[in-house]
Amino acid sequence: MALVELIDVHFRYAGSEEYALRGVSLEAEEGEFVLLVGPSGCGKSTLLRVLNGLIPHFYEGDFRGVARVAGLDVPKTPPHVLARHVGMVFQDPENQLFLSSVEREIAFGLENMGLPRSEIRRRVREVLELFGLEELKDRAPYELSGGQQQKVAIASVMALEPRVLAMDEPTANLDPISALEILSLVSRLTREKGVLAIVVEHRLELALRFATRMVVMDGGRIVASGDPRRVVLEASRLVGFPPVVVAHQLLRNRGLIGGAPPLTPEALSEEILGVIGWRR
């Protein structure tokens, strides 16, 4: 069975006329980096909230369809049980960090699970090491830079060892370099730990290179899904063309270059250098 399995999911928020999700079906396996894109209000955030049970448990409304995560039936499983399987990271790190030290922040979720102190200590140590946060462990989260804060936010949900990491615009408040760092950290988690990452992200030029799959939503439906190189061309009406794709298209139309569009400026440069026969 797939790690995440949604079949024909519909959801309408209580008090709203429109359905935010209208028949979404999605299967995803461990180790995937799924980039979820689409215009504002297309249902991306709502979809993420189905994965960790905030919908339908925290937000009331009309839920239909099948949602299974790690073999658990989402509508029948309380959010704190799902929290062990799905880590959720939000846009603003400030609203996800509550305590006075990084160390305690990471321990918070583990405390909530009722783990014994010795086990909490072990996992906190592991997570600090995995994320390279040992030096910051006594600092207050609100004293850290935005990138460090978001790293702490990810570390504190990963402490619960979830197999799915759902992220709602995790780099929206970050500068490009920190954003790149956070996304490559997530990519590392998918490769080394087999985590399934489902990431909502507007900055294609930063996120595309890490994606193993791209899913495009519009009006509460999934309108394209698959290899990012293909999907980025199919769904350009909704997501726009990243400059690297435009450059590739122009070169290809003049017959100078072939194949699918590269996902980073570096890859395009390599291709061009290859064509003109430049060797290092």
Partner: peptide, 26 residues
């Protein structure tokens, strides 16, 4: 709006599942 976002983040980390827990800091 901020309190709603905080509540979501608390839910996502399993807050409130148990009445009594063993605190990390002894």
């Amino acid at each position: 709006r901020r309190s709603l976002m905080i509540a979501e983040a608390l839910e996502a980390r399993g807050f409130g599942a148990l009445k009594r827990v063993e605190p990390y800091v002894e």
